[in-house]
Design a protein around this nucleic acid. Structure first.
Length: 580
RNA sequence: GCGCCCGUAGCUCAGCGGAUCAGAGUAUUGGCCUCCGAAGCCAAGGGUCGUGGGUUCGAAUCCCGCCGGGCGCGCCA
């Protein structure tokens, strides 16, 4: 089993360090990739970092280290040239060609597994994302959370962790009541009733469609006398009017209210589930907020907070003393009307998740919820739970542009752009790629025209094209790729070929870093660079040359590039096409 | 007002547990198809990394102030 040359160099360097500076024997050894190739393939700055604690000249330390590295581990010279000390104390390493080329056979051998890690610190990671209200179709903001969360989950899994993907369904509470009410009112209207439609009701076309399906399933069952509904008084508080309508609906429908409620919920959930599945976003579990209430978990959790002295009554409500845990102020757990807040059930939810024993919880939230983090953390602490196991990553908004103009997005009005519309317009591949092209906490300008364009400007096509190009070379060649597995790689000695090979070798390390930083965007950047280097190579050199040995080696390199492109694209949920 | 995030080439952005970090794409200009896919490649110009201090042998990167932008500050979710 070939080991990564860098790992072997690190081991040799460690040995030398132990001898040169025993008291710093455990100092972390980090390598960097020099921009200029004259500085070797990778460099170590440890001598610079040790200069201060050792009170010695960094160049001298570097010199000593590089000498002893070779002296103590002579076999290292099979992999690298003697290390060079440069500048203030860099130790530059240059790999021998054979050591670089070895990665190609490793890629071909490991295939789809290349880049995956057997994480030394393997842990079970729970990632909760999207978790949209089931009160309307997913919109483009949810799309970013979905793409980011799904890519992140794939990345963490690839990096060797046990990953559980979960969608938290906000099926309890007022928003869901408003949807049920809206659906029912539309249903009544379809039956010819003149009913007051509340200003803050859900007005989208999808509500009409749910009402129509409700009618298909239960033609007259939910018809009631619309005259019994309260008419909103002019200038009245819209919130109060809405509550009055909901109360009236519950009264008029009796037990049937729950049926309407459930019908609307399940219809909406089915829509979201279907939308996400088409977007290649899957969940292991859909967790119902209502189930926490049904199990008494919300009540119990709040009682625990109170019992621990972290809650108090004021103005008829029950408050959590979150200000004692770094929050700006205290937060309401139970309202004056006796209902628990969303916050209360969310605390119960997080306590429940931690109770399942995951090593780490990752929550993907919209950036507008950032103020919410301290209170959730605080409540977990107050419950005596390990809040450090919760990581919240914020996903900023995506702003759509069409023809250089911002696409307007209303909230309740129903004219917002849905994820489904976006996917239909630009395709799943472009949508997935564009969504994760930026750091998640960075605002995203989503250029619809660019995403749609099948041109050189479009980074998705650029990467996919590289993949398809390799495939077409193999079609042209017509041989069996399996035959390349053991071919000699030493003909790959041009700077371009060695650089491309090095790029492939970086992939596992990139996966590790990206997973640690929860940063799938770096995969997208890497793929663009890899594709670019391949395109350059392809234009500069002919692959299918006459010389059989050289041809085989070049094909092996191409096959390895194809594999790494495919592995990276898979992490992003983007197709790696053989033809375009 | 307070809190969080962000200010890097004309534009969109990487780099931010300091050094070998001034980068990519795009736009502009000029080249490359009787030859494995031109959805591609090559080349040129373009930035005192918002600003002022501080820490350091060394700062785009760490700390503080200021300026500019986004978001949040509900008994909504």
């Amino acid at each position: 089993m070939a080991v990564d040359p860098k790992t072997e160099v690190e081991a040799a360097l460690r040995k030398a360090l132990t001898e040169v500076a025993p008291e710093q024997a455990r100092f972390p050894i980090a390598f960097e990739r020099p921009k200029q190739s004259e500085h070797g393939d990778f460099a170590c700055t440890i001598a610079l970092q040790l200069a201060k604690p050792l009170r010695r000249n960094p160049r001298e330390i570097a010199q000593k280290l590089s000498e002893r590295t070779v002296a103590l581990t002579p076999s290292i010279t099979e992999l690298i040239d003697p290390p060079q000390v440069a500048g203030p104390g860099f130790i530059n390493f240059r790999l021998k060609a054979g050591a670089k080329q070895a990665v190609i056979s490793r890629v071909l051998r490991e295939g789809a597994e290349f880049g995956s890690l057997r994480a030394a610190a393997r842990q079970s990671v729970h990632i909760e994302f999207v978790s949209a209200n089931p009160t309307g179709p997913l919109h483009v903001g949810h799309g970013r959370g979905a793409a980011y969360g799904a890519s992140l989950a794939a990345l963490l899994e690839f990096a060797g962790h046990d990953v559980t993907r979960e969608f938290y369904i906000n099926d309890a509470g007022r928003q869901m009541d408003i949807l049920a009410l809206s659906v029912w009112l539309r249903y009544l209207q379809a039956h010819g009733s003149v009913v007051p439609f509340p200003e803050d009701g859900y007005r989208g076309d999808y509500v009409l469609r749910i009402a129509a399906r409700l009618n298909d399933a239960h033609v007259t069952r939910f018809v009631r006398d619309a005259a019994a509904l309260p008419q909103p008084a002019a200038g009245a508080d819209p919130d109060a009017a809405l509550d009055a309508l909901i109360a009236a609906a519950k009264r008029l429908l009796g037990e049937d209210w729950r049926l309407v409620h459930r019908f609307a919920l399940e219809d909406m959930l089915a829509d979201q589930r279907d939308d996400l599945a088409q977007f290649r976003v899957e969940f292991d579990r859909w967790f119902s907020e209502q189930s926490l209430y049904d199990a008494g978990a919300v009540e119990r959790t709040v009682a625990r907070l109170a019992a621990a002295g972290h809650a108090y009554e004021k103005d008829g409500a029950l408050w959590f003393r979150s200000s004692a845990f770094g929050d700006e102020k205290d937060r309401v757990l139970r309202r004056e009307n006796g209902q628990f807040t969303y916050f209360a059930s969310d605390v119960a939810y997080h306590a429940e998740k931690l109770g399942r024993g995951y090593g780490q919880l990752v929550d993907v939230w919209g950036a507008d919820h950032h103020g919410y983090i301290p209170r959730v953390r605080g409540a977990l602490q107050a419950l005596g739970l390990d809040a450090t196991r919760l990581t919240v990553t914020l996903v900023q908004f995506a702003v759509l542009y069409r023809g250089g103009e911002k696409v307007a997005m209303g909230k309740r009005s129903g004219d917002f752009v849905t994820l489904r519309e976006l996917r239909e317009e630009v395709g799943n591949d472009a949508a997935r790629f564009f969504y994760v092209m930026r750091k998640s906490d960075q605002h995203l300008d989503f250029d619809l025209d660019l995403a749609k364009s099948e041109s050189q400007d479009n980074p998705v096509y650029y990467v996919q094209y590289a993949h398809a190009r390799v495939c077409s070379v193999f079609v042209q060649w017509g041989g069996d790729p399996a035959r390349l597995a053991g071919c000699a790689l030493d003909p790959l000695d041009s700077p371009r070929e060695l650089a491309l090979t090095q790029r492939l070798a970086e992939f596992p390390e990139l996966v590790q870093d990206a997973a640690r930083e929860l940063a799938p965007h770096s995969i997208a950047f890497y793929l663009r660079e890899l594709a670019g280097e391949f395109h350059s190579y392809y234009n500069a050199e002919r692959i299918l040359v006459e010389d059989p040995a050289q041809r085989a080696a070049r094909l092996a390199l191409c096959a390895a590039v194809r594999q790494v492109l495919a592995n990276g694209l898979a992490l992003l949920g983007v197709d790696a096409p053989e033809k375009m």
